[in-house]
Design a protein around this nucleic acid. Structure first.
Length: 509
RNA sequence: GGCGGCGUAGCCAAGUGGUAAGGCAAGGGCCUGCAAAGCCUUGAUUCACCGGUUCGAAUCCGGUCGCCGCCUCCA
């Protein structure tokens, strides 16, 4: 007996509309997401996909679903071979090194691990088996050690990307592989014969390696069965990658659909200038060379600020990577943690440790009552509407604002106020947890945020503290001129001074 | 040429038939030695443009303009 779980709607990019989400087995979700080809560090576009599906996983679990999440590493690929040859290293070594780097970066971003993270090189036998199945069924043909998928044999070819073979202009992108071996220009390689000095595995067609798309068909069905509930990836994978996965999987298993819901994450764009000096936005990509690695971005911005930034836009829409946006996100995360810290301080003042010493009373009044009651229900409802993170953030912001309001007017630190604060704090952390933010101790997070700025601006904390102390002295002497001059100096460094009855604190603007 | 998406206040961004969330910036206020932070408050008669359907449209339909993505490297 499974309990009644909240209904959610998911925008399915095959149907191109939002649909109620109904997994095959009630309460259980089988999700497969395409990872990356590991020949270099990840960039922030990859990170967006990882962070988004991390939120999908977190939210589904939060609702009570049993989530089986598989995300692959493509560790056998032409690009890896090329890079390895350039560096004179073993391709699988190179790939495994970049898997490690990827784990570091995505871990730093707070992404929880999928249930399984299989690699192509561990599934060569399964890939060969699927090739044989496709050959036996006539969906594939072998030419000279290569195996190709016979696109015209699969009637539904194009159903995901909504295009017909005859409508597509082969070569429009300038990348169609010219080969007389193929029966049709859109036939694609399932298995590629290895050249003499290349890595390869023995197969019925000689030494070779898998083509690009087959690995996902093989690994997804291997771990999750013939029909996935959710299949995800970047929007740019719709064609040909996902289209080809459908063709391979449905032909091989004889089961349709291969995936019940297709979810595609929008591209990360970069603001640039074109040759005429006009401002334009373009997709971030390796080949255009206009990418920021996840690692670089993590050098300058807090992981939760990066996540917050990503959550400000719906996952399906493109998002522009820009310093202004990251800085705004940083300010918001700082604001949220500051509110959390204020709640803790106020609770401590009136004798309650927020974590394990909840206040008594459990009464709520006024705006706090209105906000707290049913809050998670509203938050879940927002998120259940195709993972509307901007709406989720707006709700989270209300909690922080009300905490600030309450702490500011908490002269009457009654148990009613205390319980409200306690609840708001709790909800902030709970809702934040779904988005993978507000997972740190407030003091720790604020210190991290400060350290990042100190490092970015090459500033010394002690020097700032010294100036602040000097200004405090000047204020004590009522030497307002000197105090203001010191504050101006600090302001030039981007440091804001905040005086309060408890003393002076500072932070970066 | 084909397929798809987008165009909402100075900026970012939700909202897909019932009369425009949220954030940043800006103005005013409370607080403050002055500030900052925080809080309160003001701001789109209007959703690229034109036409249509409807009691009612940012939301649906048709057309125009502009931008972006994909058409076998792509997350």
């Amino acid at each position: 007996m499974s309990k009644q779980l909240r209904k959610l709607t998911i925008f399915d990019s095959q149907e191109q509309t939002k649909r109620p989400f109904e997994p095959q087995e009630p309460g259980k979700v089988k999700m497969y997401v395409c990872g990356v080809t590991v020949y270099d560090l990840t960039h922030i576009g990859h990170a967006r996909v990882f962070v988004f599906f991390d939120v999908v996983q977190r939210f589904l679990r939060h609702l009570g679903y049993d989530v089986n999440f598989v995300r692959n590493h493509t560790d056998v690929d032409d690009k890896i071979l090329k890079r390895a040859a350039e560096q004179g290293v073993d391709p699988l070594e190179l790939a495994s090194q970049f898997i490690e780097e990827l784990d570091k970066d995505m871990g730093a971003l707070g992404c929880q691990r999928p249930t399984a993270e299989p690699k192509v090189s561990d599934h060569i036998d399964d890939i060969i088996a699927m090739n044989e199945k496709l050959l036996a069924k006539g969906f594939a043909y072998e030419v000279d050690g290569d195996v190709y998928y016979r696109v015209r044999k699969f009637d539904d070819y194009g159903k995901l990307s909504h295009r017909k073979l005859e409508d597509m202009e082969a070569g429009r992108s300038g990348r169609v592989e010219e080969t007389e071996k193929k029966e049709h220009p859109f036939d694609f390689a399932l298995w590629k014969r290895s050249k003499e000095d290349e890595i390869g595995w023995d197969s019925p067609w000689g030494k070779g390696r898998p083509g690009w798309h087959i690995e996902c068909s093989v690994m997804s069905t291997h771990y999750l069965g013939d029909t996935l509930d959710i299949h995800g990836g970047g929007r740019d994978l719709i064609f040909p990658h996902h289209e080809n996965e459908i063709a391979q999987s449905e032909a091989a298993t004889g089961t349709s659909p291969f995936a019940r819901y297709w979810m595609h994450v929008g591209m990360v764009n970069v603001a640039e200038k074109n040759d005429d000096g006009e401002a334009i936005v373009r997709k971030m990509s390796k080949s255009l060379g206009n990418f920021w690695t996840t690692r670089d971005v993590l050098q300058g911005y807090h992981p939760e600020a990066i996540r917050y930034f990503m959550h400000t836009t719906l996952y399906r829409n493109p998002i522009t990577y820009a310093m202004d946006n990251l800085e705004e996100a940083t300010r918001r995360v700082t604001y949220l943690y500051t509110a959390l810290q204020r709640a803790d301080e106020t609770l401590a003042q009136i004798g309650h440790d927020a974590a394990d010493n909840p206040p008594a009373g459990k009464k709520l009044v006024g705006g706090v009552k209105e906000l707290v009651e049913g809050f998670m229900d509203r938050f879940d409802e927002a998120m259940a509407d195709d993972f509307n993170t901007p709406k989720g953030l707006a709700l989270i912001g209300e909690l922080a604002k009300t905490i600030n309001e309450t702490t500011q007017s908490s002269d009457d630190a009654t148990s009613v106020v205390a319980w409200g604060l306690y609840r708001m704090r709790q909800l902030l952390v709970e809702a934040g947890g779904v988005l993978g933010i507000l997972e740190r101790d407030p003091g720790e997070a604020l210190a991290e945020l400060r350290d990042l700025r100190l490092k970015a601006m090459d500033l010394d904390e002690a020097a700032i503290d010294e100036k602040v102390a000097a200004r405090d002295q000047a204020r004590a002497d009522k030497d307002w001129e000197r105090a203001d001059a010191l504050r101006d100096e600090l302001a030039d460094l981007g440091v804001e001074i905040m005086d309060s009855p408890e003393g002076t604190t500072w932070r970066f603007k």
